[in-house]
Simulated scan of single mutants.
Amino acid sequence: MIQLENISKKYTTKKGTIEAVKDVSLHVKKGEIHGVIGYSGAGKSTLIRCVNLLEAPTAGKVRLNDKEFTELSKAQLLAERKNIGMIFQGFNLLKTATVGDNIAIPLKLIGVKPSDIAARVDKYLEIVGLTDKKNAFPGQLSGGQKQRVAIARALAQEPDVLLSDEATSALDPETTESILDLLLKINAEFGITILLITHEMQVIQRICDHVYVMEAGEIVEDGPVIDLFSQPKHKTTRSFLNTISQRKLSKEFVDNLKKTGSVLRLTFRGEATGDPVLAAVSKEFNVKPNILTANIMELKNGVIGNLDVHMAGEKEEVARSLAFLEAQGVVIEDWDDQYGKN
């Protein structure tokens, strides 16, 4: 559905050349929700604007529905963009137009028949739950309601693809949850493929099938969400996960505990999250597991449990207990090696 191949984007400034995106490739399959996460300045906004060529890449290829966008004429590109909806952090609503007109005006501009416009406005306002706000103005709406109007406006074009540029970052947590629920509903009911960018790991956790971690213009790690959440490899991924999974033990605290045993990160996936394996460890082996932090994360496609544990005991006995845990499907990482480096 969406294929970016070796995309690069450079800007020339008075101070020299800035490479905002560096040789990035990604593939979003039809009907899936993929997320790109990165800190400010990582290049993710530039990347998503390359998808519909709002930013023309310096190098690389952009394909949507097997059409090579970088080879289209201006007229052909404008026609293809009708199949791509986009929502933004700032909503981009016309302040002097009603909610209904904010949805109708873009439809007029892309040549939708006047007889169809009113029906589409009503249809998509109902989908986003704002039928009663049709004649209201943006200034009369909350932030969440404005974003719902923006989503209705994007959907009214009846696109195959929806691009989301930090669509929830200006919203409070409760409103963010409602917008994410709406995106999941849209994806499930209409089969719309969604590519979103965010700096909030909670967004990735909640709705994404696949995640790309971006830093300094490059993809530094990617994979199914459940894989990256259970076994993050890159320090930036681990740093993002710190924000939601209680990984922030101090190194001084951990070093003190390691004098009497090992400090480990145990990760449980799927059904294993409910198994009392630590209780079995304490019975079967001469070790004393002490849980330092515990966290269960519900992802779109699974459940992950994380425990930071101090395993007090002799090295040989601890090693035997860890072999037992690994046999039960538990992923074991040395805390200091993986998380003390952040």
Rank of each mutant, 00 (worst) to 15 (best):
D172A: 09
E174T: 14
T175I: 11
T175R: 07
T176C: 09
T176G: 09
I179F: 01
D181V: 09
L182Q: 06
L183Q: 06
K185P: 10
N187D: 10
N187W: 09
A188N: 15
E189K: 13
E189Y: 04
E189I: 13
F190S: 06
I192N: 00
T193H: 01
Q202P: 00
V203C: 05
V203Q: 06
V203F: 02
I204K: 03
C208M: 04
H210I: 08
V211Q: 00
V211T: 09
Y212C: 09
M214N: 03
E215G: 01
A216H: 14
G217Y: 02
G217M: 06
E218Q: 15
E218C: 13
V220L: 08
V220D: 04
I226H: 03
D227P: 09
L228M: 13
L228Y: 02
P232R: 05
K233M: 08
T236N: 03
F240G: 03
N242C: 12
T243Q: 15
T243F: 11
S245I: 12
S245Q: 10
E252S: 11
E252Q: 11
E252F: 00
D255I: 07
N256S: 15
L257Y: 03
L257W: 03
K258V: 06
G261M: 04
G261H: 01
V263M: 02
R265W: 14
L266D: 04
F268N: 06
R269C: 11
G270S: 14
G270A: 13
G274T: 09
G274I: 00
D275G: 00
D275N: 13
P276S: 01
V277N: 07
L278V: 06
A279V: 13
A279P: 00
A280Y: 08
S282Q: 14
S282Y: 10
K283F: 12
F285L: 08
N286I: 12
N286E: 15
V287P: 01
V287D: 03
K288M: 14
N290P: 08
I291L: 10
I291E: 05
L292H: 04
A294E: 15
I296V: 15
I296T: 13
